[in-house]
Amino acid sequence: MTELSAHHFGVTVTDLDRAVEFYRDVLGLDVLNRFSVSGEAFSTGVDVEGAIGNFAHLDAGSARVELVEYDPAGENRDTERVNQPGAKHLGIAVDDLDGFYEKLPSDVETLSEPQTTASGTRILFLRDPEGNLVEVLEA
């Protein structure tokens, strides 16, 4: 059987430059590369007629965060809540959650201050500029 391993976690955004700035400057991920993909095979593969994808790959340790801005863009959606079926979030580990929280820019929306769960894990949920949930946990 083929062995599976994580390669990337994809996040669709409407403003790639703004998203890259957030994931690079706020979360501290290094940009590995930026590129665009188009053509019939891509459009067929993503099931979006005439699709063009503008991508940025960022280094998240053992996997990449893939930010992608599509043309044509999809329709807006309501902000997801973590308990909705189909909800998704990106998990990022840090050494010092309180230090990370204290250095967040004031315009970054968090769901709460850092919390210690019953399992002993310290967590903080925030939203990227697109409203996507990001869980930052202390590892």
Rank of each mutant, 00 (worst) to 15 (best):
A73L: 05
V26W: 02
P72D: 11
T44S: 15
V46Q: 06
F22L: 04
R34A: 07
V65E: 00
H57I: 03
Y23I: 05
E21C: 13
D71V: 11
E69R: 01
N54L: 13
R34G: 05
E66K: 09
R34Y: 08
E69D: 07
L67H: 01
G45Q: 12
R24E: 03
D30E: 12
N54I: 12
R18L: 14
E3Q: 15
Y23M: 05
D71Y: 03
R64A: 13
D47K: 14
E21N: 12
V11R: 02
A51M: 14
R24A: 07
S36Q: 15
S62L: 13
G10I: 03
E21F: 10
T14Q: 10
E49Q: 11
L58I: 12
L29A: 08
L29Q: 07
F55N: 10
D47Q: 15
L32G: 02
D30T: 11
L27Y: 05
L16D: 00
N33C: 15
T14H: 09
G28Y: 05
V20P: 02
D25S: 12
L67A: 04
G61N: 05
D71Q: 09
V11H: 01
N33G: 15
F42Q: 04
P72R: 05
S62Y: 12
A6P: 12
S5M: 04
A60F: 05
V46N: 06
S36G: 15
E40S: 15
D71K: 03
Y70I: 01
E49A: 13
V48T: 07
D47E: 15
T44Y: 13
S62M: 12
